[in-house]
C-alpha cells in the first residue's frame, strides 16, 4: 500500500488509531482479567459504558458543529433527579414513558438555553455551557437534595440482565446509535452540520441556516443527555444529583479519542463510541492493576492536552526538520 493511500484512509477514518489502541488495551485487560469475554462480565462492562456512550454521541454533534457542551453532565444529573423522584417501584410502562418524556423535555429545554446563548447571543460556547452547567446542577439538587429515589423494578431488571442472542444489551444500543448517526449523516441536516463546523462564513454565504444549525446541536445534545440519564437511572436503580459531574470531561475525551476534530467540521459518532470503550477499558485496567483511581483523571487530562497540542506539535516538528 502506498504512503498516499494509507494517509488517505487514515484521514477518512481518523478513529483507526483508536481502534488499534483499543485492541492493545483489550489484550492487557484480558491478561489482568481472564474472564473478560464471558457474557456476564461483558454485559456488566457494557452496561457501565452505555450512559457515556449516549452522552458522547450528543457531544460529537456539538463538536462537529464547531462548539462544545460542558453542561452535558449536569443535564444528565438533572434528568436523573427528575426521573427517580417521580418514578415508583411499581410504575407501569405508560407512566414510565410519560415521565421519561418529561425528562427529555427538560433536557431539550436546557439545551435550548445553551443554544440560544451560543447561536443567537453569540457567547463563547466553553464559558456559556460551563456557566449553565451550574444552573442545571442546582436544579438537580433542588429536585433531589440527596442520593436516593427508585425506578420500576421490572424495567431495571430487564435492562440489567437481558442479553439477546447472548450479546450484551449495550452492544445493541451502540449499534442503534451508529445506525441513527449514519441515517442523520446522510440527510441534508448532516451536510449542514459539517459545513457549519468547517467554515461558518462560507456556509452562510452558500445559504446554510448557520444559527439554526448551531442552536439545534445544543438542543439535540440536551435531549441525548436526557436519554443518557434514563440509561444511567435504570443501570443504578437510583438517582444521585451529582452523578453526572465526572461525565462531562469523559464525553469530551471520548470525542477527541474518536478522531473528531475539536475545532469542528470533521469526525463521527462511531469513533466517539470507540473512545468510550477505550476509556472504560483503561478504567478496568487501572482497577485491576491496583493503582489509585485518580490515575484515571490524569489519563483523561493527558489525552485532551495531547489532542489539543497535536496540530501545534506537528507544525513544530515540520519546522525544525
Amino acid at each position: 500500500m502506498s504512503r498516499m493511500t494509507l494517509q488517505r484512509i487514515l484521514r477518512r477514518n481518523p478513529y483507526l488509531f483508536t481502534l488499534g489502541l483499543l485492541l492493545v488495551l483489550l489484550a492487557i485487560n484480558w491478561m489482568l482479567q481472564p474472564n473478560l469475554f464471558e457474557t456476564r462480565v461483558l454485559n456488566g462492562n457494557f452496561r457501565t459504558f452505555v450512559p457515556l456512550m449516549i452522552l458522547a454521541v450528543g457531544q460529537t454533534f456539538v463538536v462537529i458543529g464547531g462548539g462544545i457542551d460542558l453542561s452535558v453532565g449536569a443535564i444528565l444529573s438533572m434528568v436523573t433527579a427528575i426521573l427517580v423522584t417521580n418514578l415508583a417501584p411499581d410504575t407501569g410502562p405508560g407512566g414510565f414513558l410519560l415521565i421519561v418524556g418529561l425528562g427529555c423535555l427538560a433536557g431539550m429545554a436546557a439545551g435550548a438555553l445553551n443554544g440560544f446563548a451560543v447561536a443567537i447571543l453569540r457567547l463563547q460556547p466553553i464559558v456559556t455551557t460551563y456557566a449553565t452547567s451550574f444552573i442545571f446542577s442546582g436544579l438537580a439538587l433542588w429536585v433531589l437534595p440527596r442520593p436516593g429515589g427508585t425506578v420500576p423494578k421490572l424495567l431495571s431488571q430487564f435492562y440489567r440482565r437481558e442479553t439477546p442472542l447472548g450479546l450484551p444489551l449495550g452492544i445493541y444500543i451502540a449499534l442503534a446509535l451508529v445506525l441513527a448517526w449514519w441515517l442523520l449523516r446522510s440527510t441534508r441536516y448532516g451536510r449542514y452540520l459539517f459545513a457549519v463546523g468547517g467554515q461558518p462564513d462560507a456556509a452562510y454565504a452558500t445559504g446554510v441556516p448557520v444559527n439554526w444549525i448551531r442552536f439545534s446541536t445544543y438542543v439535540l445534545s440536551g435531549l441525548i443527555a436526557a436519554l443518557a440519564g434514563v440509561a444511567l437511572s435504570l443501570g443504578t436503580s437510583s438517582g444521585d444529583p451529582r452523578i453526572g459531574d465526572s461525565f462531562t470531561l469523559d464525553s469530551v475525551v471520548a470525542v477527541v479519542l474518536g478522531g473528531t476534530r475539536l475545532s469542528g467540521g470533521q469526525g463521527g459518532v462511531f469513533g466517539s463510541i470507540l473512545g468510550v470503550i477505550v476509556l472504560g477499558i483503561i478504567r478496568n485496567i487501572i482497577s485491576f492493576a491496583n493503582v489509585p483511581n485518580w490515575w484515571q483523571t490524569l489519563v483523561d487530562a493527558l489525552i485532551i492536552v495531547v489532542a489539543l497540542a497535536a496540530p501545534g506539535l506537528v507544525r513544530l516538528l515540520r519546522r525544525n526538520r
Binding site: R191, F194, A195, G198, Q199, D201, A202, A203, A205, T206, G265, Q266
Partner: peptide
C-alpha cells in the same frame, strides 16, 4: 474569496 468548505468533498 471562495465560499467552499475545505474539509468537504467537491460533490458535497
Amino acid at each position: 474569496e471562495l465560499s467552499l468548505i475545505p474539509d468537504m468533498s467537491i460533490a458535497e
